[in-house]
Nucleic acid binder design. Structure first.
Lengths: 227, 227
DNA sequence: ACCACAATGTACGAACTGGTTAGTTTGGTC
DNA sequence: GACCAAACTAACCAGTTCGTACATTGTGGT
C-alpha cells in the first residue's frame, strides 16, 4: 500500500506541479535541439536559443549533454531512431516481388518526404563528413533493416523469375535512397533554378511514380513488367 | 614609347611587388572564401579565418563584398560559374542518342565527383532553403544548358526509335542529378552506416555504370538496348 | 527524521566574431 | 610634380556565444 500510494502521489505530482522530471526534461531538450539543429546546422544553432525554447534552462543542457557537440550527437541519434521506428510500418508480406518493391519505393519516397528534419540532419552530418555519426555507437545497426527488406525482395524476385540476376541489394538501396533523398534535400535549389515547384503535390506524385518506374525497370528482367 | 614603357614597368612591378591588384585580390578572396564556406558552411566559416588565408586582409573583404552574406553569395555564384564552364566540355555530337545519353550520364557522374566543393556549396545552400540563390541574378540561366542537351538527345532518341515517348527532359535531368549528386553528398554517412567505402575507385566505377544503366533502362524502349 | 545526491535556477565571464573607424599608400592624369 | 580616386592596412569595438561557478530545491533510502 505504501508503495503504490507513493507512486500515485509521485505521478500526480509529476503531472500537476511538473517538478523533477529528468526524462521529460531530457526529451524536451532533444526535441527542441533537433528542430534548431535541423534548421540552422551545428554551428548555426544557438545554445541560448535552444535553451529559451525549452521548458527548462541552459544549465540543464550542459547537465545532461555536456556540451554543444554532445547535444548535437544526441539529436542526430534521436533523428535516426525516430525514422527507424517509422520504417517498421512498411508491410510487404504477401506481395509479389514486383509489387513489394513497388510498395517499398513508394513508402521510402513518402517517408523521406514526411521527415524533412531527418533529411536535413543527415545533410548537415554529411557536411561534417559524418564525423559525429562515426563517434556514435547507437546508429550502427540501423539501416540493416532496410537492406534486409530489399535483399529479401530481390531474392524472391529471382525465384519468381521476374528480376534479373547479378545485382547487389545494397546498391539497389543506394539508388532508391538517392532518388528519394534528393527529392527532399535539393528541392530548394532545383525549384529555384528551373522556376518550377518541385514540392507541389502533383509534381511529387509524378516524381514518385518516375522513381518507382526507374527502380523497377532497373531490377526487372526485360518483359517482366508486362510492357 | 612612353606608353609601352610604362606598361612594362607596371607589369614588372605587379609581379615583383604585388601591390594594387584589385581583380587579383578579389579573385583570391573568392577562392579562399569558397573553400572555407564549402568546408564549414555559412555560419561555420569565419571571416577572420578567411582573411588570414587570403593574400590581403579582412578590411578588403568588406571593401569588396560588403558583408559575410555578400561574400557567401559571391562564392556561391562563383561555384556555379566554374561548374558551368566545365560542363561545356561535354561533347556528344555525332553520337547516337543512346551513346550520347550514356556519355552524358558518365560525364555528369564524373564531373560531380570532381567538384566536391561545388556539391557542398549546393548542399549548404539547400540548408538555407535556397534563399541566397534566389537573390542572385547571375545563376538563373545556368542549368538551361544541361536541359537543352538532354532535350536534344531525347528528341533524337525518339526519332531514332530507341526511346519511349511521354517523358519530360527536365525530369530525366532530375533523376540523373539525383543519382550523381547523392554519390558525393551522402557518401560520408552512407559509407559509415554500411561500413563500406563508397569512394573507392572500383566502387565508384560500379556506381557509375549502375547509374548509366538505370537511366538508359528508364528512357529506352523495351528491347532497344539489345538485351 | 535525516542525509546524500540528483535535479534545477541565477548570474556571470572570457573568448570570439562580424563589422567599423581612421588613416596610409599607390598609380594614373593634367 | 601636384592632385585625387582607388586600393589597401592596422587597430579597435560592441554584441554575441559557449560554458561555468555558485546556490537551492526535491527525493528516495534508511
Amino acid at each position: 500500500m505504501s508503495e503504490s500510494g507513493s507512486e500515485v502521489r509521485k505521478a500526480a505530482r509529476k503531472v500537476s506541479t511538473r517538478q523533477q522530471d529528468p526524462e521529460g526534461t531530457r526529451q524536451n531538450i532533444i526535441e527542441v535541439a533537433s528542430q534548431e539543429f535541423a534548421l540552422n546546422g551545428l554551428s548555426g544553432a544557438r545554445i541560448d536559443e535552444i535553451a529559451a525554447k525549452t521548458r527548462s534552462s541552459k544549465r540543464m543542457i550542459y547537465y545532461y549533454f555536456g556540451d554543444k557537440e554532445g547535444l548535437y550527437l544526441s539529436a542526430l541519434e534521436s533523428a535516426y531512431a525516430t525514422v527507424r521506428e517509422g520504417e517498421a510500418e512498411l508491410d510487404i508480406a504477401g506481395l509479389s516481388a514486383v509489387d513489394g518493391l513497388r510498395r517499398l519505393v513508394e513508402f521510402t519516397f513518402t517517408h523521406h518526404h514526411q521527415h524533412e528534419d531527418f533529411i536535413r540532419m543527415v545533410m548537415i552530418e554529411n557536411i561534417h563528413h559524418g564525423q559525429y555519426l562515426e563517434r556514435s555507437s547507437v546508429v550502427r545497426d540501423l539501416n540493416v533493416t532496410a537492406i534486409a527488406h530489399i535483399k529479401d525482395l530481390y531474392e524472391r524476385g529471382l525465384v519468381e523469375g521476374q528480376f534479373r540476376p547479378g545485382l547487389d541489394p545494397l546498391e539497389i538501396h543506394w539508388q532508391i535512397s538517392a532518388l528519394c533523398f534528393f527529392n527532399v534535400s535539393n528541392r530548394a535549389t532545383f525549384s529555384r533554378l528551373f522556376a518550377r515547384d518541385f514540392g507541389a503535390p502533383d509534381m511529387l506524385e509524378r516524381l514518385k511514380q518516375n522513381t518507382v518506374e526507374m527502380v523497377l525497370r532497373y531490377v526487372a528482367k526485360p518483359g517482366a513488367l508486362g510492357e
